Computed example of a mutant assay.
Amino acid sequence: MFKILFLLFIVVPLLELYVLIEVGSAIGALPTILLTIATAALGGLMMKYQGIQVVQQAQLSLAKGEHPQQQVMEGMLIFIGGVALLLPGLVTDFIGLLLLLPPVRVYLAKRWLARAMRQPSASSHYVHAEWTVRDEESGRIEYHQVSRRRSDANSEQSGRIIEGEVLDDKKN
């Protein structure tokens, strides 16, 4: 965590300052400022249209009964790109614009999702069950719910075998 904070608060601003000074000395101060403003404005427009497109794709996925994981990840990357564009500087503008390009964003979202699928989640160590039982005499329906931490979360057979028995007391 320290490395990430160090990069964000020390290295990135110094890099931004260096790039702004170099670009400013090459093309002048006013063109550098206008370039920074233009990239932010272009990025804002791209963010708006890319965001609308991703929301529409997510709605289509939901209509098909699919989970919109890819679209959620892309939406998060659009948001990160938008935040990067709000920060003053050409390096963060470049990173923000990269995150708004659909091929780059799709690639990063797929890699992030693939990585997340390989890592076991914290919720995989819990078992959750719910069921209803109807009392034949009174007609009352009882709802039961149980959530427990699995004690054998590291075993190979964990979560693979479910033993049970269904009893039917109805008389034919």
Rank of each mutant, 00 (worst) to 15 (best):
E22M: 13
R105T: 04
V11S: 02
A116D: 03
E163F: 11
I95Q: 05
D169S: 14
G51S: 11
E130R: 10
M117H: 04
I37V: 13
L20A: 13
S158F: 10
Y18L: 15
E163L: 15
R134Y: 11
S155N: 07
V104N: 10
Y107E: 02
L77I: 11
G24P: 00
F6L: 14
W112V: 05
L34M: 08
H144V: 04
E74T: 00
V146C: 07
L86T: 05
H67N: 12
L42R: 01
P68K: 03
L100V: 11
R149I: 03
L7M: 07
K48L: 10
I21D: 07
H128P: 02
A122Q: 09
L5M: 00
E165D: 02
G139L: 12
A58K: 08
L86C: 13
L17Q: 03
N154F: 14
Q56G: 05
Q57K: 14
L87F: 15
G43D: 05
S61T: 13
G89F: 00
A84E: 04
K171S: 08
Q71H: 15
T39M: 14
L14V: 02
A58R: 12
W131N: 10
L35N: 01
E66I: 05
T39G: 03
I161H: 08
S147V: 05
V55M: 11
W112S: 07
N172L: 14
E137F: 05
V72L: 15
L60A: 15
Q59L: 10
I80V: 12
I10R: 01
L87W: 10
G43H: 02
L35W: 01
L34C: 06
S121A: 12
S158A: 15
T132L: 11
G51K: 06
G82R: 01
V11T: 06
R150H: 04
L5C: 01
H125P: 01
K110M: 04
S155Q: 08
L45C: 01
F6P: 00
G51E: 03
G139M: 13
I21T: 10
E156M: 12
G139T: 11
D152V: 05
E163C: 09
A26W: 06
G24A: 02
M1N: 10
L113R: 00
M73I: 02
M73Q: 09
L85H: 06
W112R: 03
F6T: 06
L85W: 02
V127F: 15
L97Q: 09
R115T: 12
P13I: 02
V54A: 08
T39D: 03
A58E: 06
F79H: 05
P13Y: 00
P103H: 03
G51Q: 05
L8V: 08
W112P: 01
I52C: 06
S138D: 08
E74S: 03
L45E: 01
F2Y: 02
A40G: 07
V127C: 10
A40L: 11
Q71G: 13
